[in-house]
């Protein structure tokens, strides 16, 4: 168990360093930042002084070490476009994205898994066939189109729900949340459904495939022969054994949710990190781009670690094999 965790941690550090190197190298692509900061009127001495204070005269490895040191402390420099510290901008936008992603993930799991179990158990029922057809379309529908269709239906035609931005915010410390008011939820629900739909269909199809696989195995037949109740066979034996691949995919999908939140946030003008990064890409705002890259990589690495550890919780075989191997 321990050497497994250590191995994963080493891998995580490797990934983070690679991403950090890529992020750092972004800065080398753009012109001299001194020109941007001082303007064309600055004298040569001022430029030299600025280069010295910014540490631009240091060798590249030294600059990289400094940059990583700052990044670890949450310092990513100033945004070129907005002239504010990147850490402030991200701290301001982060809650919006995290709430959106969390609500979407919950929708995807708590609707997707039951639908998958149902279509797996009642393979030939009418409802299953509808679910499957809808899921096939769901996989082929791009996220932004789902958003547009939902806006058209609930925002424009029916006029039930607001279609852009956040609203009904409550402050808890530095965290602006929209989860505490009905108005906040009315703003959140359409983007969250948009974001969740693709993952929902994916989870549903996966759970169904795994259920079909497991239901064919001998131990399920044996459980039936023992006369166990159907409920306990379906949920205690079958569903439990489908969980390993499902957890893997869910872990990966939370990462995908973060990436796809860029699209959802653009469609719904949701003021989160996705909107920030799209604007940064359009304006070539390197500090925001690089820090976003590092932050997203960090999320991915943490999620992957958690997923690996969850395997131990759901799959007792892993625990036994590892201990057996250690003896």
């Amino acid at each position: 168990m321990l050497d497994f965790i250590v191995q994963r941690l080493v891998q995580a550090v490797f990934v983070m360093l690679t991403v950090a190197m890529i992020s750092f190298s972004l800065f080398q692509f753009v012109g001299d930042p001194v020109n941007n900061m001082l303007g064309p009127e600055a004298t040569a001495e001022q430029r030299l002084a600025a280069r010295e204070t910014l540490g631009l005269n240091d060798p590249i490895p030294v600059q990289f070490t400094k940059w990583v040191g700052n990044a670890v402390q949450g310092e990513f420099g100033q945004s070129y476009r907005m002239g504010r510290p990147v850490s402030d901008l991200i701290a301001q936008r982060l809650p919006a994205t995290l709430e959106l992603v969390a609500v979407s993930a919950l929708i995807a799991v708590f609707v997707g898994v039951p639908m998958g179990v149902y279509t797996g158990l009642k393979r030939n029922s009418f409802l299953s066939k509808i679910f499957l057809t809808v899921s096939l379309i769901g996989i082929s529908l791009p996220t932004f189109l789902i958003g547009i269709l939902l806006i058209l239906l609930f925002g424009v035609t029916l006029g039930w729900l607001p279609t852009f931005g956040r609203g009904g915010l409550t402050n808890i410390g530095n965290w602006e949340t929209s989860l505490l008011t009905a108005r906040g939820w009315s703003h959140l629900i359409l983007p969250a459904i948009t974001l969740a739909l693709f993952q929902l269909t994916l989870i549903m199809r996966l759970v169904r495939a795994e259920m079909l696989e497991v239901l064919r195995t001998d131990y399920i037949k044996f459980a039936k022969a023992r006369g166990l109740r159907q409920r306990s066979i379906n949920f205690g034996h079958a569903l439990k054994n489908t969980l390993v691949p499902v957890i893997t995919i869910m872990g990966l999908q939370i990462g995908a949710l973060l990436a796809f939140s860029i699209i959802t946030e653009t469609v719904f003008q949701w003021p989160g990190m996705g909107l920030l990064i799209i604007q940064a890409i359009n304006f070539g705002d390197i500090p925001i781009m690089s820090s976003y890259l590092v932050l997203v990589a960090l999320f991915f690495v943490i999620i992957n670690l958690v997923v690996d550890l969850l395997y131990y919780v759901v799959d007792p075989r892993l625990r036994i094999e590892r201990t057996a191997g250690a003896h």
Binding site: L26, F29, V30, G255, I262, I277, I281, F300
Partner: peptide
């Protein structure tokens, strides 16, 4: 392995961002 941890859309977006700054 490293690349597989990132969704396609994010990689494409980043390459695009880098290219447009250059």
């Amino acid at each position: 392995d490293v690349q597989l941890t990132f969704p396609a859309i994010l990689i494409a977006l980043m390459i695009d961002g880098i290219a447009s700054t250059m």
